[in-house]
């Protein structure tokens, strides 16, 4: 799960002194929608931007396991429990594919993980919101995965081969994620008063953060132009956000739930929904780590890694002994 919100940080500076013929040839290949592969020449800024984008994407998948993981042990039926466990496991797998894609650019996974743990690397802020009821699991699948898919589908054609291939696998696997979320919401919407209440409450809490997932408005998004040229981003934040709203509003109506936006209206001339202003101060506060669960998420991640150190060391030690025995 991931969207373009992460290009909120400063762009990587272009390296000076790179051979012009190589730069030109690279730009021409990218413009012609060719794929760049790990050993091909690439501008240093392209490499660095990609490492940042792909690793942040990977971090988001891994941290994204926690809000939903919070409900695996409490899922209200065995079927829902299995589906949720499989889904959260998928997110872990997606993080894994993406770390591997970033590793082809010369970044090691332990370095990337270290950057996450030290707070140097960012992840999607949506995962710093708490999951308070079972309906949140429905809302996350429906809205958060829905928003992520909007962004991830075009990334299957991104210019960097390993990233594009990872995204093909991710998108194929994610295709059930949004549906399982909507199916939870449907069951709740058709259920008891208490269930309908939790469904509406979850929609109220997740709607605006989901819209924020697409990142700052285009005019406040510093990386967009170059990233679009380099095909590491294929549609702008505002375009994707509009697409998401247009797709989601009718789905909410079908559930009999109301979108928590008094300004939401169908604009006949644009053929699209107009919607209210997003509270960007909240967005930037959450980016800064002021989300309800910011501390818990990163602490859980760090603890898993630190607690696992002796396991990784033991397996390495076993292999070293085995190799030594083979030599002897």
């Amino acid at each position: 799960m991931y969207t373009t919100e992460l290009d909120k940080s400063r762009p990587v500076d272009l390296q000076t002194g790179e051979p012009k013929d190589l730069v030109d040839a690279f730009e021409a290949r990218v413009a012609a929608d060719e794929f760049i592969e790990p050993k091909d020449w690439m501008p240093e800024a392209y490499r660095k931007t990609l490492i940042r984008q792909i690793s942040q994407h990977a971090h988001s998948e891994i941290i994204g396991m926690y809000p939903e993981g919070n409900w695996i042990t409490r899922a209200p039926s065995l079927q829902r429990k299995a589906i949720l466990l499989a889904k959260v496991q998928d997110e872990g797998g997606h993080g894994l594919y993406l770390y591997c894609a970033a590793e082809t650019l010369g970044a090691s996974r332990d370095e990337m993980v270290d950057a996450l743990h030290s707070g140097k690397a960012k992840y999607s802020t949506i995962f710093n919101y708490p999951t308070l009821t079972w309906a949140d699991i429905g809302a996350i699948g429906w809205l958060v995965d829905g928003a992520a898919i909007m962004n991830q589908v075009p990334l299957q054609r991104t210019s960097y081969g390993p990233y594009a291939r990872a995204m093909v696998r991710v998108c194929k696997e994610e295709s059930f994620h949004q549906r399982q979320g909507y199916s939870i919401m449907l069951a709740l919407a058709e259920g008891t008063d208490a269930q309908r209440r939790m469904a509406q409450d979850a929609l109220n809490r997740w709607w605006w953060p989901s819209l924020m997932m697409f990142g700052p408005p285009d005019d406040a998004s510093p990386n967009t132009e170059r990233s679009m040229r380099w095909r590491i981003k294929r549609e702008t934040n505002d375009e994707l956000r509009q697409k998401f709203v247009d797709a989601t509003v009718p789905q909410a109506e079908l559930l009999g739930l109301s979108i928590p936006d008094p300004d939401l209206t169908w604009n006949e001339t644009r053929g699209a929904y107009d919607f209210g202003d997003i509270d960007w101060s909240e967005f930037y506060a959450v980016v800064k780590g002021e989300g309800m669960c910011a501390k818990e998420r990163i602490t859980a991640r760090k603890k898993a890694w630190d607690d696992g150190a002796w396991v990784r060391e033991a397996a390495d030690a076993y292999e070293a002994k085995k190799q030594a025995r083979n030599v002897a």
């Binding site: 591997c100 090691s108 996974r109 332990d110 370095e111 993980v113 630190d306 150190a309 390495d316």
Partner: peptide, 8 residues
């Protein structure tokens, strides 16, 4: 920094 396993 704690180490990861080799890549396959």
């Amino acid at each position: 920094m704690s180490k990861d396993w080799p890549l396959w």
